[in-house]
Amino acid sequence: MAASALSKEAMHPFPIDMYAYQNRLRDAHPAEKMLFAGLTILICLIASSPLVALLAIGIVTVAVVRVAGIPLRAFWYFVRLPAGFILIGVLTLAITSVDPANPATLLALPIGPWHVGVMESSLARAVQVASVSFSCVASMLALALTTPMVDITDQLRKWRVPQLFIELMVLMYRFIFVFIETAQAMYIAQNARLGYSNWRRSLQSVGMLAANLYLRSQTRASALFTALTARGYSGELRVLTAQPTWSRRNLVLIAGVESVLLLAAIATW
C-alpha cells in the first residue's frame, strides 16, 4: 500500500533508528523524552477509558510530527507495525463463549454444545485493550524516534544500570549493523545463485547464512578484541558521555500535557 511512498523507511534496516538521529528533538535531554513517554504510557495503562488513549495518541502525534518533525505518514507506518499482534490479540478477547440468552450477547454461533460469539463486555474490552496498546506503541515511538541509542545508554549509565549490561548493549548495537550488512551481502550472493528458488533450498540457504554469520561473528570478536587491546583495552569499555542540558520549556510542556491527560483519566474513570 504505502510501500512505495515509504521506500526510505523500507531501505534502512531500522528506519526508526534512522529517525532517531535526524529529528528536531535529537539534542533534547534524553531523560525529558523518557519522562514524556513513560508518563503517557503510565496514564494510558491506568486509565479505564479508551478516550484517554485516543487523546494520548493525538498528543503524541502532535509531539512527534509537529515538534520533532517526523513525517506523519512515517509515524503511522511505525504505529501500525505491531498491528498484527494487537488485532489478533483483541479479536481473541472479543470472541468468547457466550450465553445466547444473555441480552448483552451481540453475536452467538452454536458450536457443538457451546455458543461462541461476542458480548458487549468482551467487545468493550477488546476496544479498550487495542486503543491502550496503540497509545502505548505511539508513546514508546515518541521516545524511539527521537532518541539515539547512544543517548539511551548514556542515560542508563547515569541511572547506575550495571556497567556490564550497558557495555554489552553498546557492543551489540554497533555490531548488529555490521552483521546485517554481512548477512545482506551473503543473501544477495545466494539469491544470485538461485539459493531461494524453492522452499527446501531456501531453508538450506538460510541455514548456510546463519552458520557462516556465526563463524564471522566469532572472528569479528577476536579482531575487535585485538583492535581494542591496541587502544589500551583491559576489560572496561569506558567512553565519554554527552552532557545534555535540561530545558525548562520542555519540562513545563511535559508537565502541562501530562496534567491534561491525567485530568482526562480522572474525568472518565
Partner: peptide, 17 residues
C-alpha cells in the same frame, strides 16, 4: 576481557538471526 567482546558479538548475532 576477551569474553566480553565475544558476548557482545554473540548478542548481536542473536539479534540478526
Amino acid at each position: 576481557p576477551q569474553s566480553k567482546i565475544t558476548l557482545g558479538m554473540s548478542g548481536a548475532y542473536s539479534f540478526v538471526l
